[in-house]
Structure formats: C-alpha cells, structure tokens
Design a binder for these strands. Structure first.
Length: 511
DNA sequence: CTCGTGCCTG
DNA sequence: CAGGCACGAG
C-alpha cells in the first residue's frame, strides 16, 4: 500500500514487521523441540540400559529397575527438555552424558533393541486404536494420543501398579502451547546452539545447515526402519506405523518454505565444536512430532488437514500416485516383513528426491500468476517439471494460486472502491498503466525483485477486473450474497498461455 | 463418505 | 501463505 515501504530493507520488513517472522521462530522452535526430545530419548534409553546392566541407580526406586527408568524417561518430557531438568536426576544425567559420548555406537544397537521391546509392548493397544481412528478430527490429536499411550505403556512395562506416578504425570502433561511461553524459549537458544555447532556464519552455510538438518530428520528414520528389520524380522506393525505416522513432508516443507535464511543474523564467530550432527542422526527411535496445535472442536470435520495427513501416511511409500489403496499400502508395508526389500527401495527412493516446494517454486508460481490466474492442476504439473507431484504438493500449489487470487481481488476491490469514492463515474475512465498504484502494488507482490517481463496482458486483466468490480459496486451488486463469483468467471477467461521458458529449470534458478 | 473449493484467520 | 472450516457435488 504505502510505496515508502518499498524502501525498507528486506530484513526489516520481514523480521520486524512481518508476522511470518514469528512463524519462522515457531517452526524453529518446533524443530528444536523435536531434536531435544530425540536426544532426551537417547539418554533415556541409555539410562535404561545402564540401569539394567549396571546397578547405577539403585535407590531411585524400590520397585524395579524398569519402573525406575521409565520414570526417568517420562520426567524430562514433562518439562519439555532436559536442560531445565536439574532435579534429582542430575547425577544420573551427568553420568549418562559421559557414557553417551563414549559408547555412542553401542548405544545405538542397544536402544534399537530396546525400541523393539517397547513396540512389542504397546503393539496391541496402539495398533487397534490407531486403525480404528479413521475419524479425521482425531488425527490432529493423534500425536497427543500416541504420547499418552507411549507413556502408559512404558509404565505398564515397568510396573503397572504405579497409579501414583500416573497422577503425578498428568498435570504436567498439559503444557501451554503458546509460541513464546517461557518453556519454549530455551529452544530458541537451542537452535542457536545448533546453528553455531554447524558453523553457520553466512546465509550460504545456513542453507547447508537446513539441508543437513532435513536429512537428519529424514534418513535416520528410514535407516532405523531398515536396520530394525534386519535385527528383528518380526518387527511389530506398530513400529513402522509410528514412523509413518510421523512422516514429514510437512516438516521438510517448513524447512524449505522458511526463508529464515534470508533473515538470519550470523552469530559471533563460533568456537569449533564437535560434529554434533552425527549424534542427531544416531538416534534410533521413531520420534514424535508433537507440535502443539489447536485442537479441533468440530466433530464433523473431514477437511483438508486430516485427509492430507492420511494421504501422507499412505503416500510416502508410493510417492507417485494415488490409485493404490491407502490402507493397503499402509498395512502391508508396515506390518509385513516379507516386504523388506520393497520397503528399503521405496525408502531410498523417497530419500532421493525432493518432495518439497521451495521458495524458488513460490517465486515462479507468482510470476506465472501474471499469465494465469486459474491454472489447472495439470497445467501446474507441466510447468513444474522438477517437482514430484503428489496430492500434497498439488494441493499446496493450488492453494498458492488461490492465495494469489485472493490478494489480487482484494487489492482490486479496494482500489475500485477508492476510485469510486474519488468520484469516478465513467467506468471507461478507469485506466491502468504500469505506473498506477494498483499495478505497482500487485507487481510488488508477485514480482518483488522486478526481474521479470510482466506481460502487457496482465495490465489488461487488472484493468478489466478493476472495471468489473467498479461496475458491480456502482450497481450495488456488492450487496448481493456472492456477487464476486460472476466477476471471477469473467476474469477466469482472461488467462493467458504461459511461456515455455517457465518449464526450463535453468531459467527458474536464475530468478 | 470423499474430494474439491472458497472464505476467513493467524 | 498455510490451517481450518463449511459447503456441495458425486
């Protein structure tokens, strides 16, 4: 709106005034949370092993070793992470950290085995319930449920009769979800540490960092899946199920969509630290993405999110497309060890390509908007040849254009009313030039760097749209329920052919 | 019930 | 821009 904002530096715009900056922080927060949780789990597993093999924590509980350890593994979770958890377990934790460095490899194997045991334990309940849980609105809560079940089954595994423990645990299990609650602040610190560890001093290295981070989030899970299968041919379904459930196109999406890179302020020159990344990728359990989210209230909801979620689950194995029944692929791939080979293959293949839309794709899409406001999904597929399309991706792209349109129409309506208010009577007087405010606003939105040849046809479209809106408003059509629909239809016919160079990847990378 | 769309929210 | 949601077609 205000042309003067164009003079602001991108950094100021995005980091200070742009609310998306907060989203970035939240995403990073979540990532940090996940990582911390993973590390914590490793520590926990370690403590389980050490306590069962060596009497290192004798007095902590008189019940049994198992009960003691399961208790340990729960407490840190409640407090969101171990950094804050300097209570009774301090001694034990120090010990654990030392041991962890020394016997990292050993740990992996053991914890994997341990994981299998865990899965065996919770197989029955979890399996049945999650399958039955086809109701979409519950999927959002699935993570929560998983955690709960995880907790309870761990307890059962240790000692079921510890009702007291459960009671103690519950109140803290309901932590606040506020993005910047005191509890989540440490994660910002944590992510900074991560960045420093990865020697991030420039946006370029930041990119690498994010990429590595993503790999660490992805590949280990699959490696785990494979390895475990090797170790235990009779892997219970629930294990893979858990893995699948927490699959993350979404997560990677976050990594890619975030232009955090652009806003990142390099920290002071960091002292070299141990390669931390390996530790991360060493974890050998299916971590849970318990990203706090608003819970659904409606029961009737069957919308995008749940559906997509289920799609993710079913599609990550067969990225390519729909046709196959989701439930089938899900079950067979997860619970059947005869599929070992297949599973590996799909896993590898899955790791091989990008199933994410990058910010580059976004810019490209915006530029395409100059030509077409209503691209069909088939058109999108043609003009994004480097993208591995699945329903998720398609939905996202479609959503992008939907958002583009929204902005487009909102601006035009705004200016339309403005012009009318300024006393314009004759619609023919509404002429859009490249210098028009409206045009500049739109151009700024879809073509920030101004490095594309905006087709003249776009100017025509803007003008036409403006006139349609003005006309409708003038006629007070805007009082009718869905008066914009008819305008939309008209504008939809004005779509142009998209130039072929949009298909060229090289060209795309040049923008 | 699934799926695609549009609105509107954060 | 992405999440959520209501609605309607199939």
């Amino acid at each position: 709106m205000n042309p003067s904002t164009a003079n602001f530096s991108p950094y100021l715009l995005s980091s200070v005034f742009n609310p998306r900056y907060h989203q970035h922080l939240n995403h990073l927060n979540d990532m940090a949370f996940t990582h911390t949780k993973m590390l914590q789990e490793i520590i926990d597993k370690r403590s389980i092993d050490s306590s069962s093999s060596a009497p290192s924590s004798p007095s902590s509980s008189s019940i049994s070793p198992m009960a003691a350890t399961s208790n340990d593994s729960i407490q840190p979770k409640k407090r969101t992470h171990a950094y804050l958890d300097n209570n009774n377990n301090e001694q034990q934790q120090q010990q654990q950290q030392q041991q962890r460095r020394q016997e990292k490899d050993d740990l992996i194997k053991r914890s994997k085995i341990k994981q299998e045991e865990d899965d065996d334990e919770e197989d029955n309940h979890l399996n049945k319930r999650s399958r039955k849980q086809s109701k979409p609105q519950q999927l959002a809560e699935k993570n929560q449920i998983d955690d709960d079940e995880q907790l309870s089954s761990e307890e059962e595994m240790g000692e079921v009769h510890s009702q007291d423990e459960k009671n103690n645990i519950f109140p803290i299990q309901q932590p606040p979800i506020l993005p910047f609650s005191p509890q989540s602040l440490p994660f910002l610190t944590y992510i900074q540490d991560l960045a420093r560890t990865h020697n991030i001093t420039s946006p370029a290295s930041m990119t690498r960092f994010l990429e590595n981070l993503q790999k660490e989030l992805f590949s280990p899970m699959h490696n785990v899946g494979i390895e475990v299968k090797r170790l235990a041919p009779s892997l219970p379904p629930v294990f893979s199920q858990t893995v699948h459930h927490h699959h993350h196109p979404y997560f990677s999406q976050i990594l890619y969509n975030n232009s955090f890179v652009n806003h990142y302020t390099p920290p002071p020159p960091p002292p070299p630290i141990l390669p931390f990344g390996n530790t991360l990728s060493d974890r050998s359990f299916p971590f849970r993405l318990s990203t706090p989210k608003k819970r659904r209230t409606k029961v009737t909801d069957t919308r995008l999110s749940p559906r997509i979620t289920s799609k993710i689950i079913s599609h990550e194995d067969l990225m390519d497309d729909d046709k196959s029944s989701s439930t089938h692929s899900f079950d067979s791939t997860t619970s059947n060890h005869n599929n070992n080979h297949h599973h590996q293959q799909s896993t590898i293949e899955y790791n091989a390509f990008q199933i994410t839309l990058t910010s580059l794709h976004l810019r490209k899409a915006k530029l395409m908007f100059f030509y077409t406001r209503y691209p069909s999904s088939s058109v999108l597929k043609v003009y994004f040849p480097d993208v591995r399309f699945n329903k998720l991706i398609t939905a996202q792209l479609v959503k992008w254009f939907s958002n583009f349109r929204e902005f487009f129409y909102i601006q035009i309506e705004k200016y339309s009313r403005q012009y009318l208010a300024e006393g314009i009577r004759n619609i023919e007087d509404l002429i859009i030039t490249t210098d028009s405010d409206l045009y500049r606003v739109l151009n700024l939105h879809y073509n920030r760097s101004n490095q594309i040849d905006v087709p003249i046809s776009f100017r025509d479209v803007v003008q036409s749209t403006l006139r349609e809106f003005s006309h409708a408003i003038q006629q007070q059509k805007d009082l009718e329920p869905s008066w914009k629909k008819s305008i939309y239809k008209i504008i939809q016919r004005l779509d142009d052919q998209i130039p072929d160079f949009f298909k060229d990847e090289h060209w795309m990378h040049s923008i």
